[in-house]
Simulated assay, not measured.
Amino acid sequence: MDSAEELFARHGIDAVSNRRITEHAGTANHSAVAYHFGTRDQLILAMVDRHLSATGERRAQRLAALGDDVGLRDLVAAGILPVVEVLAALPVPSWRARFLRQARSVPSVVAVLATRAGHPDGLEFLARHTPLSTDEGSRKVMQARVGIVSHLVFGVCAEYEARVEDDDEEGTWLDVGYFLVDSVVGLLTAPVTHRSSYLPRSSVPGLV
């Protein structure tokens, strides 16, 4: 999985063969992916699950500690900060954020992920917990904005991960996390100034 993560991040998921992954992992068994995971799709799902497992426990602890009086900023922080904490704990160079950006943007991979519950960033819980207006138009706008969150989070994290690799970073992963919290809260609370018939398609399963 580590070898696949690096190659996918560097070259793109659709551009890397199973054989190339096994060779990069240092094994002469070119059927190793099939032996350990079954199919290429199952390998990708296993890689996504590894990330979700790493962030899920941290996120559950944060949500459990919030209590009853929960504000939007608290929910957003509980969603985003576990992601950057996990990324910060990876060895340098790391490839996780860049792989996940690929995983949630390549059509072939999105089709695979759509067959299962959950999402590669684990942020779909915001759609369940973010207060939505009773007005149908405003509700759809908010749902669409929630769907944009993972684009923003993993775009920024992937860029910072690359800076860390190049020893060109400013600040820390925690700084990145709070920048994203502020940005997402601003996105979700911005006024709706025009009711357009256009809304981006949500990237969160279950949202329309």
Rank of each mutant, 00 (worst) to 15 (best):
T55N: 05
G26T: 03
A28G: 15
V185L: 10
V106W: 03
R98Y: 05
E159F: 04
G155A: 04
T39L: 07
Y160R: 09
F125W: 07
T115R: 14
V76L: 12
D69A: 15
A60V: 02
V70L: 01
Q143A: 12
R116F: 01
L72A: 06
A162H: 12
H51G: 06
A78V: 08
A77C: 03
D166F: 15
V112S: 06
H30A: 14
N29T: 07
P191N: 03
A162V: 06
S183V: 11
T115A: 14
R139I: 01
M142C: 13
A127H: 05
V184G: 00
A4N: 12
T39V: 08
F8S: 07
L152Q: 11
A114K: 10
E169M: 11
V48K: 11
D182A: 11
S17V: 14
G26Q: 05
A88D: 08
R145E: 02
P191E: 04
A97L: 00
R101S: 12
F125Q: 10
H24C: 05
K140D: 13
A32V: 03
Y198E: 06
H24D: 10
L100I: 10
G38E: 04
L63Q: 04
V164G: 07
A28M: 13
V156Y: 11
L90R: 14
A144Q: 03
R19K: 15
T189A: 00
Y178C: 10
A9D: 06
E124N: 14
P205Y: 00
S3L: 07
E169T: 09
D14Y: 01
E5H: 10
R96Y: 05
A190D: 10
E165D: 13
G147C: 05
A25R: 08
V48H: 03
G137K: 05
Q61F: 07
R59W: 00
L199R: 12
L180F: 05
Q102T: 03
S133M: 00
Q143P: 04
G71C: 02
S105G: 13
V181T: 07
S53L: 14
D175P: 03
H151C: 09
I21D: 05
A144V: 03
S94T: 07
S183P: 03
S133D: 08
V181K: 06
E5C: 15
H119K: 11
L87P: 04
A9N: 04
F179N: 14
P91C: 10
A4C: 11
E170C: 12
E6A: 15
V185K: 09
H151A: 13
S197H: 09
D41Q: 12
V48D: 03
K140P: 02
V86Y: 09
H36N: 15
T39F: 08
L199T: 03
Y35V: 15
H119M: 07
T193W: 09
S150Y: 02
H194D: 13
Q102S: 08
W173E: 08
V110H: 02
L66S: 07
Y198G: 02
L199D: 04
P200F: 04
R73Q: 08
A46N: 13
L100D: 02
V176P: 02
R19I: 14
H129L: 15
E57P: 01
R50F: 08
A77Y: 02
I80S: 05
V48L: 01
R195Q: 12
S150L: 00
Y35Q: 14
M1V: 11
P205N: 00
I80W: 04
W95A: 09
W173I: 05
L126P: 11
